[in-house]
Design a protein around this nucleic acid. Structure first.
Lengths: 231, 231
DNA sequence: AAGAAATGTTAACAAATGTTAAAACTGTTT
DNA sequence: AAACAGTTTTAACATTTGTTAACATTTCTT
């Protein structure tokens, strides 16, 4: 799939920022429709088929939250990135995030926005594929879709976090998974506490993979973790 | 590695679908050999060196599973994508997946197939990189991936910094590693203090390599360090 | 030879990670 | 609404790792 086919709905009431963003995104190969408030956004959204929404929260007539609330009723899948002013409480945004969502605080660089868009699009495309993915990890089998870890004949259920974390590790087997990358992808939040939470799950995974001593989750100080399976 | 070098064995008994797939894949730069059943597949597979197999499950003479079972006996690494009819139980396929495998349900788009192929090829190439990282340093063995230093039967864990520093030294064994090079690569910072930190780790490595007196980390005043193993 | 700069070494401290358990949260049942 | 079972987060404490400071020694410069 190519960028040229990806259609973005951009909701931004500030005409300056709006057109600048639109220009940059178009330069990067996306199709972008700009709406200046929630009401207009809804109309446009219903008439077309978008792959991603960029939504400013503070807008006249209908704000970002109201907009998202509306479209979520008919479409629970489309990834949304909120554009927020710094002042806004993070709590509120987090409460609003559903499924494939993320948020980014103004002012932000266009590069950062692009990175997050790519991550979200990749993820949402993945989730469309109902199939896929049994991995061999040493003597274990890991079934990502079913969230189970198999050792010989014994199967063990993984929790959501365990499953996601093991998935990102195994997808990058032999390579370092940066803390920040994992936190962004799984926790959508790279705060201090999210980081500690991740450490807890690393510890849990290590326990669950203990039956094969050739498997190790190595911590790379200051960067992250890497999963290795030695010969 | 380039697409032009990637050789694919395609097993598909339906001549229509078979040649369509072959054409599309060739247009995308792959080399593709088409076989119409398992028996023929085995013969071709044994005579050549493929990077990926696309295997239809339902085939006359020898079906996809039987084919894979055969080739897995001699080659446990090559990635395989099963092409399956919708009716088939997912259980059976999943049970079959080992290591770098995936499957895709007919009908599928060529784009989706290409995406999965790329993902698998990337992963299998990575797992190749994972393996070669053990260096002999005098009487020691140094395993960069596992971050361990082995002397006779005793293994000693290295910290991340020790590991990185020893790695850059051993990769340039006999040659000077410039201070600045190491600092930029490992510390990502060539300030005064980072430099002192590096000196500390050089000191630590010297201690850990003391058991073999033919190993030396020589300091080259004003430039950096070099690792040498005499005789 | 004397002073300056670079390196060697050790130890104190700061920061990151490992681990366990309690608290908070979620969804479900009663 | 209370009780619950399962999951995740937060807190606390232990341990490991990395940085900085201090002082010793070596090397270079003049």
């Amino acid at each position: 799939m190519n960028n040229q086919e990806i259609k973005i709905l951009l909701l931004e009431d500030d005409p300056n920022l709006g057109t600048i963003l639109q220009d940059h995104l178009i330069m990067n190969g996306y199709k972008v429709i700009l709406a200046v408030n929630g009401v207009e956004g809804i109309n446009i959204f219903d008439r077309d088929n978008f792959d991603l929404c960029l939504v400013d929260i503070m807008m006249p007539k209908m704000d970002g939250f109201a907009f998202v609330e509306k479209i979520r009723k008919t479409n629970s899948e489309i990834p949304i990135i909120f554009l927020t002013a710094k002042s806004l409480k993070e709590d509120k945004i987090k409460g609003f995030q559903i499924g494939c969502d993320d948020y980014i605080t103004k002012p932000f660089s266009i590069e950062e926005l692009l990175l997050r868009m790519i991550a979200l699009l990749k993820r949402s495309r993945k989730s469309q594929n109902t199939q896929k993915s049994v991995y061999q990890i040493g003597k274990y089998k890991f079934d990502y879709n079913r969230q189970v870890l198999l050792f010989q004949k014994e199967s063990h259920k993984l929790t959501t976090r365990e499953n996601e974390l093991l998935h990102i590790l195994v997808e990058n087997i032999g390579n370092v998974v940066e803390r920040e990358t994992a936190l962004r992808e799984i926790w959508r939040d790279d705060s201090f506490f999210a980081g500690r939470s991740m450490d807890v799950f690393i510890s849990k995974l290590r326990k669950q993979l203990k039956k094969d001593s050739s498997i190790e989750i190595i911590s790379v100080h200051g960067r992250g973790f890497k999963l290795i399976v030695s010969a």
